[in-house]
Design a protein around this nucleic acid. Sequence first.
DNA 1: CAGATGACAAGAT
DNA 2: AATCTTGCCATCT
Length: 113
Amino acid sequence: MTTTYERIYDVVRQIPSGRVATYGQVAELAGLIGKPRLVGYALYRVTDEMAVPWHRVINAKGKVSRSPVRNGTDYLQQALLEDEGIIFNNKGKIELSTYRWHPPIEMLERLEI
DNA sequence: CAGATGACAAGAT
DNA sequence: AATCTTGCCATCT
């Protein structure tokens, strides 16, 4: 049986290099409309063996969600995104209109969104 | 099994 | 623009 978190990881795995999605967007695509926090909770528990591009998920303000409990993975996140060609401005913000991932139409139809 | 834990988002101030 | 509410819940120990 697929757990809630596995569904979230499956969505994140669809995000291509050089694009990003917001927590709310991932929640919606995972069938968890209005529960963006669950995505944050799930990503906190990601390990490298899971092969989930967790760094491609940012908050709705277009910034990396910083938190002391992340042990520096928040700063690593920005570095990984820059490696994929994403430009951050001087305030650590990116242009969502430029970099946001647009899921394939079949995916949206399957979810009836 | 009860309590602790934690990467959000939108609206109000 | 920055800070403060409020809603929200699967996992881990």
